[in-house]
């Protein structure tokens, strides 16, 4: 809802019916049919739309998380490591990258992502997580902090 001036915004809260309804009609401007023209119908649908908007803020975040996880999963499968193992190994190595960054790396920087999976596989082996098949491990020359100790 955009009010170009402060005066219009303040008027819309007042007792003046036209300005009160105007605020609702502005929100209903993109609806179809009587939903946008009749106040008593418009107000119902505006309330509904605001509820959807509230819920949508959470859903959008969840959708993005799902997409990132799918992409990281795809990247992990190319290098023969499981998503959960990958995340666990990275956190053990102190590489605290979130889903968004990992997904971007998998998509745009495949070489950097491969370096991360190499580190994860090396760490998985050292810690004896024993979930990676031996023929998938090709990493060599990877140093993790656990090796230094």
């Amino acid at each position: 809802m955009v009010f170009t001036t402060v005066t219009n915004f303040i008027r819309s809260r007042g007792p003046d019916e036209i300005w009160r309804k105007r605020r609702i009609f502005k929100l209903a401007a993109h609806f179809q049919g009587r939903k946008r023209n009749c106040y008593s119908i418009a107000i119902k649908y505006v309330h509904r739309a605001l509820v959807y908007a509230t819920k949508g803020r959470q859903l959008k975040k969840q959708d993005m998380i799902n997409l990132w996880e799918t992409r990281i999963n795809a990247g992990c499968q190319q290098h023969g490591i499981n998503y959960y193992t990958f995340r666990e190994a990275l956190s053990r190595c102190g590489i605290l990258l979130n889903r968004k960054v990992l997904a971007d790396l998998a998509c745009w920087e495949p070489q950097s992502f491969k370096a991360l999976t190499d580190i994860a596989q090396e760490r998985t082996q050292q810690d004896g997580l024993n979930v990676i098949k031996a023929d998938n491990i090709k990493a060599s020359g990877v140093l993790t902090r656990a090796m230094k100790k």
Binding site: L67, T70, R71, A74, Q78, A106, C107
Partner: peptide
Amino acid sequence: GLYKPIYHP
């Protein structure tokens, strides 16, 4: 194409 890192619905 779920196995590609460029996947999007």
